[in-house]
Simulated scan of single mutants.
Amino acid sequence: MFSSIEGVLGGQENIKFWSVLDQTKGKVGFLNHHFIGTNLKYKKVILIGLDQTFSHYHAVALKLGHNLTKQREEKKLRFFNGARHILLNTIGQESMLRPENGLKELYKEISDLLEPDSFLILDNISVLTSLGFSNREVYLFLTKLSKLVDGLNSSMLSTFAQLEPDLLTYNISRNSDIHFEIQDLKTGKSKDVTGNISINRRSVCGGFSREDYQFRLEEKSVKLFPPGTSGAVL
C-alpha cells in the first residue's frame, strides 16, 4: 500500500517536461532531491538554484546518501548560484536579473551549462515573478528552455511556489508531461501525514489523468499512499 515516488510514477523514459506547483510552506524540496538523486545515477544534473543555495542542497543530500560536492567536483552536477546573482543585481553590480533587461542573459547562462542527455532542475521559478518579470516573460522563457532541452535529448523539472495558482502556472501545467501539485493538510498538522500530492499525467492524445495521494516525509525517504489509508487511520 505504501509506495515510493518511483513506484507511483513508473516508467519515465519518455517524460521530457515535469512541473511542480508547491502550495505548501516549503515542502517542495523533497521532489527536487528525489530527481537529483535519481538522475545522478545515469546522467548529469544541472541545478538552477533560484531559491536555495548549494550549501542547503548539499546538507540535505548528505542525509540521503549523496555527496553533491563530490558530484560537482566530478562535473556530474553543475550548479547555478541564482541567489548570488540576485544579490549582485540588488546592489547594482550586474544586470542579469533586472526586468528591464529581460531573461536573455539567464537563458544563455543555462544553455551554456546544458549538455546532451542531462536533467535540468529550475528551483522555484516564482522567484522571477517576485523580481518583477511578467508571467508572459517567464512563460516564454520556460517554453524556449523546454525546446532547447528537448533538442538535446534531455529533460527538465520546473517548480513554482505559489499558494494560489494563476494563468502562468495553469499554462505551464498544461504543457507538462507530468505535473505535481503539493498541498498542506487542510485539517492541520499530523505526525502520520505530511500533506497531499496530486500527479497529473498528459496522455498521447493530450488529455490529462489525475491521481491523488497523501505523503509522509521520513528521514531518508517519502512514502505515498491513497488518501485516508495512513497508519493512523488503519
Rank of each mutant, 00 (worst) to 15 (best):
L142N: 11
V8E: 06
K189G: 01
D192W: 13
S134K: 05
L114E: 09
D177G: 04
L68K: 01
F79Q: 08
A59Q: 12
S154H: 08
G65A: 06
F30D: 00
C205N: 12
T229P: 00
E181H: 08
L157D: 02
Y42V: 07
L217A: 02
R98K: 14
T90Q: 10
K70E: 15
K75F: 13
E105F: 02
T194Q: 10
T143H: 13
E181I: 15
F225E: 02
Q71N: 12
R216N: 08
N32Y: 05
I46W: 02
K27T: 09
E115F: 04
D150E: 15
D117T: 11
K63N: 11
T194G: 08
E218R: 13
G7Q: 13
L131M: 09
K186R: 10
G228H: 01
R84M: 11
N196V: 11
E73P: 00
S155T: 03
D112E: 15
L31A: 06
M156P: 04
H66Y: 15
S221E: 14
E94Q: 14
F2W: 05
V45I: 11
F80A: 03
T143A: 10
H58S: 15
Q183I: 04
N67A: 10
I91M: 04
T129I: 09
G29A: 01
M1Q: 03
A232M: 02
Y213H: 06
F35H: 07
L145Q: 05
T169G: 07
N32L: 15
